[in-house]
Each structure stands twice: as C-alpha cells, then as structure tokens.
Computed example of a mutant assay.
Amino acid sequence: MKTTNAVMEYLAALERLKKNAPVHVPKGSPINKDQVALEAGRKRGTIRNRPGFEQLIAEIESATSEQSPSVKKKRLQSNPNQSAEIEQLKRDLDVARSRYMSLLYLNAEMAKTISKLGGEVAQYGVVTDLQIDPNSTDVPY
C-alpha cells in the first residue's frame, strides 16, 4: 500500500517524539495518536482507525509500549505547603462528616421524642421553615 504524504508527516513526527525532540509539543510528552497528530501540525483526533493508517497506528502503539514509565506519567514535584493544606482539608472534612452524622442522630432522636409526646414530625427530605439566630454564639468546633 502506498504511503501518503500525511502518513509520512505523522511518521516523522513520531520519530521526533521517540527522540524526545519535538517541535510543536512540549518535550517529554506521552506518545499517543493525539500527540503525534499535534506534533505533525495537525489537529487532535486526525489519526483514526481507517484505511491507510494501519502501519502508523501499529508503530504508535509499539512506541507507546516502549516509552519509559517516567515519560508516560509526568508527575510534578509535591509541594510541602500544598501537602500540608491537603492534610488539613482532610481533617476538616472528617470533622464536618462527624458533626453531620451527630446532627442526623440528634435530629432522629428529637423526632422520636416529639412523636412520643403526640406532636407532628415533618418527614425527612421535606424542607421546613428554619429560623437562625444571628446573635448565636454556637460554634461548630
């Protein structure tokens, strides 16, 4: 089968990506069909499973499997400040979940008490009129 000019451009782009010397995409980019198309100066998604691209797709897949793991998964260095902030957010989430579960339990207990005393209890999921005291000193934690 005759190789078209477009396929030859894609193959040249693939070779540049293999050598980690791309012109149009950042160095260290993963090798896949979209990156090869972008490196060839074409749009993303132009390399598809259609007649004429079988050899190209096979070479891209073989290059992908040969690519080193460090290039496949490019990871930024962890930022200590960001890590500390993430840990603090996780702790805050645990506190919020704990408080939420506690309030759910308290709400269920109050609903039982109201029912025992003969009062009417709103069904769960129904929004009722809430009044919040703006001068309240109740702090969740």
Score class of each variant (00 low, 15 high):
T113H: 07
R50F: 06
N81G: 10
R97E: 12
L130A: 06
R50L: 09
K74A: 03
S115T: 09
E54I: 00
F53W: 05
A58M: 04
K73S: 14
T46G: 12
K112T: 03
R44D: 11
S68A: 14
A84S: 11
K112D: 13
S83M: 07
S98H: 04
E85P: 00
I47C: 02
E109R: 15
R91A: 14
E54A: 08
Q88T: 13
N49Q: 13
P80N: 02
R48Y: 05
T113Y: 06
G119E: 03
E85R: 11
I60L: 02
V121A: 06
R48W: 05
K90E: 14
I86A: 13
E61A: 05
G52R: 03
R48I: 11
P69V: 07
Q82D: 13
L76V: 09
L106K: 08
T64K: 11
M101F: 12
Q55P: 01
Q67G: 00
V121D: 01
Q67L: 06
I57K: 04
Y124M: 07
N107E: 15
G52W: 03
A111M: 07
K74G: 00
T64Y: 10
V126S: 09
G45M: 03
V121M: 03
P80I: 03
I57G: 03
R99Q: 09
K73T: 15
P69R: 06
S65E: 15
N107C: 12
S68V: 07
R75V: 11
S65V: 10
A63E: 01
N107F: 10
M110I: 11
R97G: 07
A58F: 06
P69D: 08
A96L: 11
S98G: 08
L89P: 00
P80A: 10
Y124R: 14
I57D: 01
A111V: 04
R50D: 08
D94F: 08
G119W: 04
D129A: 09
G119D: 02
S102M: 09
S65R: 13
S65P: 00
S83H: 02
K72W: 02
R44A: 14
S65G: 02
G125C: 08
G119F: 04
E120D: 09
S83F: 02
Q55G: 02
A96G: 00
F53I: 00
G45C: 03
V121E: 04
G118Q: 03
